[in-house]
């Protein structure tokens, strides 16, 4: 478990980092953020970049800002900082709750939200919760910055919209409207493990008690995080009764598409998507002051 030899570059600016990424011959340079996923992969020689671009010195990528109806988070912001941020809790409490499920505190102290998103593990919390929140991801490359919606960002297992000569620089989250209740339900073998299945739910309830908006995203069930659109459709316009919640839970199970693995057969994940969706919706509803 010793990495193969690799060139190390400490980036001095975003432009410098992008410059190295785009000038590496085999397009195999890698950004080093918190190292919580990359370093084990290097050690097991599963990742063998020719150059490591260390962005830990780029303090201008480490921030959490509220700009009106948007929350902006720098890619290098540590997961723990996101979890603990009052601004995040205020704007998108679903994100705060979700970050608490990422590994253990020591890992969140080092690991970055940008790294988690760029790494795109299908069972990771950050990618799925950002899909639920309709976040936007800012990618910077030689031609400048571009923005991709979270639901278009994840292309497959560990693959994203970020090109080899680009890096993720910012995560933009729309502020949740008033009257929104949130809940995360996660089933993991142990506290701190990647999810077997996790459900991220946010429901917005109007004055008449009817659901005006619903977002449901799943992690661990598909090669990428997924939105359970059909289930959301069941909820919108409904009164969030036990029946509609059960119906939505059923529909959520329908979007799962996982393979059997050592922790669970595919059917188990599908069934759990339904159980956890129901639990998450009940809690989210009660968070929005609806009695189910």
């Amino acid at each position: 478990m010793k990495p193969a030899s690799v060139e190390y570059h400490k980036a001095t600016s975003i432009a410098d980092a992008v410059d190295v990424l785009s000038s590496t011959e085999d397009e195999d340079a890698k950004v080093l953020a918190g190292g919580q996923s990359l370093v084990p992969m290097l050690s097991m020689r599963l990742a063998r970049p020719s150059v490591l671009v260390d962005i830990n010195g780029l303090t201008d990528l480490d921030y959490i800002r509220r700009d009106g109806d948007w929350l902006s988070i720098g890619a290098l912001t540590r997961s723990r900082a996101v979890e603990k941020s009052a601004a995040v809790r205020d704007a998108a409490p679903l994100l705060s709750e979700a970050m608490g499920f990422v590994g253990h505190a020591t890992i969140r102290n080092r690991g970055t939200i940008g790294g988690s998103v760029a790494h795109a593990d299908p069972a990771a919390e950050a990618p799925a919760v950002l899909c639920a929140l309709d976040a936007e991801l800012v990618i910077t490359g030689p031609a400048g910055a571009r923005t991709v919606g979270a639901n278009d960002f994840f292309h497959g297992f560990l693959t994203t919209a970020v090109g080899p000569d680009e890096m993720l620089t910012e995560i933009r989250v729309p502020v949740l409207p008033a009257g929104t209740g949130c809940a995360v339900e996660e089933l993991a073998r142990r506290h701190g493990d990647f999810a077997m299945v996790a459900v991220f739910a946010a429901v917005t309830v109007g004055d008449d008690g009817r659901c005006t908006d619903a977002r449901l995203a799943l992690a661990g069930t598909n090669p990428t995080p997924v939105r359970a659109r059909e289930a959301e459709a069941v909820l919108v316009g409904s009164g969030l009764t036990a029946e509609t919640i059960a119906q939505a839970a059923q529909a959520a199970a329908g979007v799962t598409n996982s393979a059997n693995d050592i922790h669970a057969p595919a059917e188990y994940r599908r069934d759990m998507a339904s159980v956890l969706t129901r639990r998450a919706l009940r809690r989210a509803a009660s968070d929005a002051n609806v009695v189910v």
Partner: peptide, 28 residues
């Protein structure tokens, strides 16, 4: 409750890290 060295049908071992072979932690 947690620990199992799992082999696939092809005879390949599938649990060679602490991510796959689960030992109890304080919370268990």
């Amino acid at each position: 409750l947690l620990e199992e060295l799992v082999y696939g049908e092809d005879g390949q071992i599938q649990t060679t890290t602490f991510m796959d072979y689960l030992v109890p932690t304080a919370t268990d």
